[in-house]
Simulated assay, not measured.
Amino acid sequence: MKLLFLLFLVINGAHAATHSLKYFYTATSGIPNFPEFVTVGLVDGLPISYYDSKIRRETPRQDWMAETEGPEYWDQQTQVSIGSEQTFKANIDIGKQRFNQSGGVHTVQWMYGCEWDEETGATDGYDQDGYDGEDFISLDLKNLRYIAPVQQAVITKHKWDQNRAQLENRKHYLTQECIDWLKKYVDYGKSTLKRTVLPSVSLLQKSPSSPVTCHATGFYPRSVMVFWRRDGDQVYEDVEHGEVLHNEDGTFQNSVHLTVKPEDLDSGRYECVVQLSGVQEDFVTKLERSVVKTNHGNTGRTNPGAEGSGSSGLIIGAVVAVLLLVAIVCGVVIWKKKKNAKKGFAPANTSDDGSNSSNNTAPKA
């Protein structure tokens, strides 16, 4: 349990100095009245650009992107997404053939991007494809070869591995160009991306028999650790960690749930601890029955934000999470892995033989 908890901290508690640029391409079939193709670009988890097959236009999702990049940038990105749209539609048909499927709802996804540690200078890149919410193929950047976790992807692996020029091109983008664009975007949005906003912490419980939820909301940056302590020691059993979610104002929220006996509510043994990256002070809330908000109207207190901000933040965050889920066609939530040439997109190929494409669109499977 301790190892699992440490792994959770590694995934959800990255250092604030680490920045990321990620792109999610998602194509779907069998979903009426929904865009068949969507792309979303994110910097440090915040959406910066968006395209779908209905609006057919790449659009900014942050004011600092709209203010710093002109029409030429968005025209270029639009052409990249239009080219990728056609390839992704073809890849859905290829996927259905490989998996011997017909009809139904299907998705093809491409996730790629890079990370940069502002303090150490360390960088990393990733390039992964998925089909129907499962891993399909991914790039081993260190050994410069593709990994096929399913038999249906082996033919794609062999084809892409043989194109050494394209592999070198991907490596150059992920290790150099992507990092250059990430640094530029971080500078564009430094007033947002480098700010610190302290969390508001609330203790919530649906019913006397339900787990007690420690809910931290309104914080920035995303890097946070939320956990329970008993008698000064971290609690690993009977604890469930939630995901870090977006709030509509650009901040984040996170929750951790503790299953505890009713008599322990006033034992004074338990406390919730919130640690925000870059802030030395821990935010500690002691578990007492009087501070727990319930569905029965108990008006506990919130620390350090305004009264009621915890529960309202939970609702807002849930709504925003659903909207983001729709916007990227489940690209982040369904496929849980963390993991084209100008203006932030890498050149890739469109032809089935793997030749270079001047349209900088996604590769065909």
Rank of each mutant, 00 (worst) to 15 (best):
G242C: 06
C272L: 03
D249P: 03
L258T: 05
E243H: 12
V274S: 02
R269M: 13
D266A: 11
N254R: 07
N247R: 12
L245E: 09
T259P: 00
T251Q: 05
S255W: 02
T251G: 06
V273H: 10
S255M: 11
H241G: 00
L258G: 03
G250D: 07
G268N: 12
G242F: 07
H257E: 14
S255V: 13
T259H: 15
V274Q: 01
D249R: 05
G250L: 04
L245W: 06
Y270F: 15
V273L: 08
V256G: 03
H257A: 11
F252E: 01
L245K: 06
V273I: 14
T251H: 07
V274C: 06
D249M: 08
H246W: 10
N254M: 09
S277A: 15
D249E: 08
H246D: 10
E271A: 09
E263V: 04
Q275H: 15
V244T: 14
N254Q: 11
Q253W: 00
D264P: 00
D264V: 01
T251K: 03
L276P: 04
Q275K: 15
H257S: 14
L258Y: 07
Y270E: 02
S277P: 01
K261E: 15
V244A: 12
D264T: 01
F252Q: 04
Y270L: 05
L245P: 00
V273C: 11
C272N: 01
Q275E: 15
E263D: 13
C272F: 02
R269P: 00
E263F: 10
D249C: 09
P262R: 08
G250K: 02
V244S: 09
F252I: 03
R269G: 02
E271S: 09
H246S: 11
V244D: 00
V274N: 01
H241E: 07
N247M: 14
C272K: 00
E243F: 12
Y270I: 04
E240L: 08
K261Y: 10
C272E: 00
Q253N: 12
N254A: 12
L276Q: 08
F252C: 07
